[in-house]
Nucleic acid binder design. Structure first.
Length: 830
RNA sequence: GCCGGAGUGGUGGAAUUGGUAGACACCAGGGACUUAAAAUCCCUUGGAUCGCAAGGUCCGUGCCGGUUCGAGUCCGGCCUCCGGCACCA
């Protein structure tokens, strides 16, 4: 080989990558049409929070989306593959405080840096549709969304006990409290009683659960997590009566069959029910003291104290409406104010928590369920409650009723007598969306002394975030200290009024961004349905599992609400969800700036090239698995590309050929035929692998193909070139620059991404001779070559002739002959 | 505690519905080329064992049992790890 030729085959990734990025950009290769044709593909990756620069986790996420988008493009679909920035949020404010920068400045700087990195990766985003949630032309519509919810009564204010982060000095949603700590700064979360804004997501609880059954392409673990998070349970609400006053206190139970075993009642200390008891004297003091004590306990302490129960007796008694029995009324920490009615009927014999409590305070225990007709529970032998279903005893006319049937009978009786009603309860709480912070979308509400809370007139949107001088959190929104902002006229009566000073949780911003991509510049409405509808639903949504019970519930909620008010057509936003695995450092630790173990994709791409970096990431593990990153994972693919795959262009002969045609097997010599078959098997495998995001095996398949393909042995120029071009196409979604360069070196003029994705020749996906394994009694003993689809009898008689097989079958009786077509024979002898 | 998921060579991982376990790589070892090194190429590479060799034999997918002609895959019981929930009545 002469020097000149060697030179042209050197894989100069820097030159190749920058060249094609420039050309693709000029050609607007990734620009999605305003409205897609029939065959559309909406490829969505979760947008990014701009904190510094993109890291390896983002890189992995986005190359998965990119390869999918390019693959769909080649399959002839109109692809929407947009990107944007989840740009409001606390870290920007913290940076503002620490560095004396405006949060906007910090945010926009990070967006610049991150966008540049992403553009360097050559990811096929349609940048003309980029959105930023902190920009007024975006948050205008976040505010519009709020107003629509408000109009329907789904955004409302209420006073209640909320999670409060003393460090960030703001309230947090339940989802933002992890193990009793603020998920951002890990400070212990406190409870405060405050008036806050909520979205009535609980109205959608049933649809959020039931909708999961319409999502076969969502991973089961996410669906299970959402179901448990929403926590639907069916039960009975029973009215207990306060003895003194005759007032009713309803309780919720999922075990109505244990109602005759109630020996006390317990109320949550912070429940308003406690007030209703009108306690006086020593009991009032005791209960007040206890309540204060409990509120001092942090979430962590309360969580850690599971198993330890305490409470105080109120001196009051309640009456069980089923049997008229008088029971003690306690206040106890283990009862949650926010679930059910804030009060429980306690059945120590059949509930472990009630059992512990009753033992501790010497409250009677009454057995009303026996495991079955023959087993009888004995109180002095019990060291825990019996909580399984069983036979009702000591329960008046219900005695003998069993399990779910028993529950049904008790429920019916309660409804008939008017002492209770069937009820569904949820663990899910309404979504607390107000934040006492600066860097968020202002809540578009004006508080008027006469008219109350009034929404800002839609034509006055956006409510612009004003500049403030001081971001230091004081426990109220920094906006409250800006009089020009706060003091406005009431949109209804024109009188003096004040704006709501709070901003919205950033999860509100991210609950609808996928809709804005369809029409990102619209200043008349959030989007035009004519533009949105043809793209929806999202065909594939790729992101981390961390959002399973947060964002992925919120955005489904928004979709359902918008469907109800006629702004979207689908019940569910995304047909398929894919959770990618995390990228850790070599020791298995999460990469973080403070640990100094962050591997930057930009450095990597600079040293090894974008396509090698992508292939290394793809090859090292299946996409859903965690990856421990070292540059070592690149060694194999780098050698393959540099020494094997890229040099294939040097073997191209420039034949005149039609890529859509097939070769006739009968006209090929043995080697050519086998290679042609291998090619078609590879086409089939790679396509199937792409469909399930299994890029690691797709690369293996291409390595095998290259290994088997020896151009020197291929006589037909057309076949030789055909194999090379198809291999380039199969590689293209994973290594775009490399493939494009090779494609053009082989004389193609248009982009490889506008070429048609290879289809396999159905006649050529199987060899016409097959290797059949021969087992005797299930153990592999030999193998043989047979014509494909040979008759069963022929295959078995050939197998029986095999000399190795004979040594195992001689002199033995053959009881069974099993043949699995084209794969295996099993001879069973005795 | 409850609910998911996983456990395969020295390593990352293949095996799409029960049908030849370990594809494809990495690492390691050996060889070729070279004055030498790097690079490149070729060979070996689950364990044990027999054989000069060609080639056999036995064991082997966390552990114990089961179903089946046949189990990494299905069933029952256990162990370990990871993730989620965590007093939800």
């Amino acid at each position: 080989m002469d020097n000149e030729k060697k030179q042209t085959l050197k894989y100069n990734f820097k030159e190749i990558e920058s060249k094609w990025q420039k050309i693709w950009d000029e050609q607007q290769l990734y620009k999605a049409p305003e409205k897609p044709g029939k065959d559309k593909y909406y490829m969505l990756v979760m947008f990014a929070y701009p904190s510094g620069d993109i890291h390896m986790g983002h890189f992995r996420n986005y190359i998965l989306g990119d390869a999918t988008a390019r693959y769909q493009m080649m399959k002839g679909r109109d692809v929407l593959h947009p990107f944007g920035w989840d740009a409001f949020g606390l870290p920007a404010e913290r940076a503002a405080i620490q560095r004396g920068l405006h949060p906007a400045e910090w945010t926009y700087k990070n967006i610049e840096t991150s966008r540049k990195t992403l553009q360097t990766t050559g990811i096929s985003f349609d940048w003309s549709r980029e959105v930023m949630s902190c920009s007024p032309d975006y948050y205008k519509w976040t505010q519009w969304m709020f107003i629509q919810l408000f109009k329907k009564g789904l955004a409302y204010q209420k006073t209640g006990w909320v999670n409060w982060c003393p460090e960030d000095k703001t309230v947090l949603a339940n989802e933002q409290v992890v193990d009793g700590e603020c998920e951002r700064c890990h400070t212990k979360v406190e409870k405060k009683e405050l008036k806050q804004w909520y979205f009535r997501i609980t109205d959608y609880a049933d649809r959020l659960i039931d909708g999961l059954d319409m999502l076969p392409k969502w991973p089961d673990n996410v669906k299970t997590m959402q179901k448990e998070w929403i926590g639907r349970s069916y039960g009975l609400e029973v009215d207990f009566i306060i003895k003194e006053t005759g007032e009713k206190i309803p309780i919720f139970t999922t075990r109505p069959d244990t109602i005759y075993g109630v020996t006390f009642m317990a109320i949550a200390p912070e429940s308003p029910l406690v007030e209703k008891l009108n306690l006086v004297g020593e009991y009032r003091e005791k209960v007040e003291k206890y309540k204060k004590e409990v509120l001092m306990r942090s979430e962590i302490d309360r969580a850690a104290a599971v198993g330890e129960k305490d409470g105080v007796f109120t001196g009051k008694y309640a009456i069980n409406p089923f049997n008229g029995e008088e029971i003690q009324l306690w206040v106890a920490d283990y009862v949650l104010a926010g679930y059910g009615t804030g009060a429980v009927m306690a059945v120590p014999a059949h509930d472990s928590r009630d059992f512990l409590f009753a033992k501790k305070y010497d409250i009677p225990i009454k057995i009303v369920i026996h495991p079955d007709g023959n087993t009888v529970l004995k109180l002095d032998e019990m060291d825990d409650a019996y909580t399984d279903y069983g036979v009702m005893v000591n329960s008046a006319h219900f005695d003998g009723a069993v399990g779910e049937d028993a529950i049904r009978k008790v429920n019916d009786y309660a409804e008939e007598k008017g002492i209770g009603r069937k009820k569904v309860n949820y663990k899910l709480r309404d979504w607390l969306i107000s934040r006492q912070r600066y860097w968020g979308a202002p809540i578009p509400i004006i508080h008027c002394p006469k008219c109350g809370a009034v929404s800002v007139t839609e034509s006055d949107l956006p409510v612009l975030l004003p500049d403030v001088e001081n971001y230091i959190p004081k426990g109220r929104s920094p906006l409250a200290d800006v009089p020009e902002y706060m003091n406005v006229k009431c949109p209804e009566c024109g009188g003096k009024a004040q704006r709501d000073a709070d901003t919205m949780d950033t999860f509100v911003c991210s609950s609808w961004y996928y809709l804005r991509y369809a029409d990102p510049k619209n200043d008349k409405k959030p989007y035009d349905r004519d533009k949105l509808d043809p793209w929806m639903p999202i065909d594939k949504y790729i992101g981390g599992i961390t959002h399973a019970t947060g964002h992925l519930i919120y955005f489904r909620f928004f979709q359902k609400f918008l469907k109800d008010i006629g702004w979207v057509k689908d019940e569910e936003p995304a047909t398929e969800l894919f959770n990618l695995g995390m990228v850790m450092d070599a020791k298995g630790e999460v990469m973080s700036k403070s640990k100094g173990n962050v591997v930057s994709p930009i450095g990597l791409m600079d040293r090894r090239g974008i396509d090698i970096s992508r292939l290394g990431m793809f090859f090292t593990a299946p996409a859903e698995k965690e990856v421990l990153w070292t540059d070592d994972v690149l060694v194999g693919v780098e050698k393959f590309i540099k020494n094997r795959f890229y040099p294939l262009t040097g073997k191209f002969r420039g034949a005149d050929l039609d890529l859509k045609s097939c070769f006739k097997l009968s006209e090929l010599d043995d080697y050519s035929k086998n290679t042609y078959i291998k090619l078609n098997q590879t086409i089939k495998r790679v396509g199937e692998d792409f469909d399930r995001l299994q890029f690691n095996t797709a690369i293996s398949a291409l390595m095998e193909l290259e290994h088997d393909f020896k151009p020197d042995k291929i006589k037909s120029d057309a076949l030789n070139d055909y194999i090379i071009l198809k291999a380039i196409q199969l590689m293209a979604p994973m290594a775009p620059h490399l493939a494009e360069e090779m494609w053009h070196r082989c004389g193609m003029n248009d982009s490889v991404f506008r070429s048609e994705w290879p289809e396999f020749d159905p006649d050529a996906v199987k060899f016409d001779t097959v290797t059949i394994a021969i087992q005797v009694n299930g153990k592999l003993r030999s193998e043989m070559e047979m014509a494909r689809d040979s008759a069963k009898d022929d295959v078995i008689s050939t197998a029986l002739e095999d000399s190795k097989v004979k040594t195992y079958t001689d002199g033995k009786e053959i009881i069974k002959r099993i043949y699995i077509a084209n794969r295996l024979v099993n001879i069973v002898v005795k």
